[in-house]
């Protein structure tokens, strides 16, 4: 499952890195955290569990709240390859 989280604008990358550190030895189900350049004020979290924001490991500075509902994988795909056409041309 994929979830969106609201974070302080400008702190997307910092929050993603802090959150990754914070959950390292915790059983949150989180496997990846995404901070696309074009999504100001949001990060995305991949997890095989429902996220409980009361979990102490999810309390990191500048992380504001969980957006209700999950996000489709296809919606995130566009953030992963910002220049797919170019890559294809180069690789022939």
């Amino acid at each position: 499952m994929f979830y969106a989280m609201r974070v302080l604008i400008g702190q997307e990358k910092n929050v993603a890195a802090l959150l990754a550190q914070s959950i390292k030895h915790e059983d949150t189900g989180i496997s990846a955290i995404l901070a696309p350049e074009s999504m100001q004020g949001y990060i995305f979290v991949e997890s095989d569990k429902m996220l409980d924001m009361r979990h102490p490991a999810l309390r990191v500075p500048n992380l504001r709240s969980l957006v209700e509902g999950d996000v489709e994988f296809d919606e995130l795909k566009s953030f992963l390859n910002p220049e797919p056409a170019m890559v294809n041309i180069i690789k022939g």
Partner: peptide, 19 residues
């Protein structure tokens, strides 16, 4: 460079698999 993904568990991540 721009954009960031932090992969904590590549074996269980669809995002990591895609990338």
């Amino acid at each position: 460079w721009s954009g960031l993904i932090v992969v904590t568990d590549p074996d269980n991540s669809k995002l990591a698999e895609e990338l």
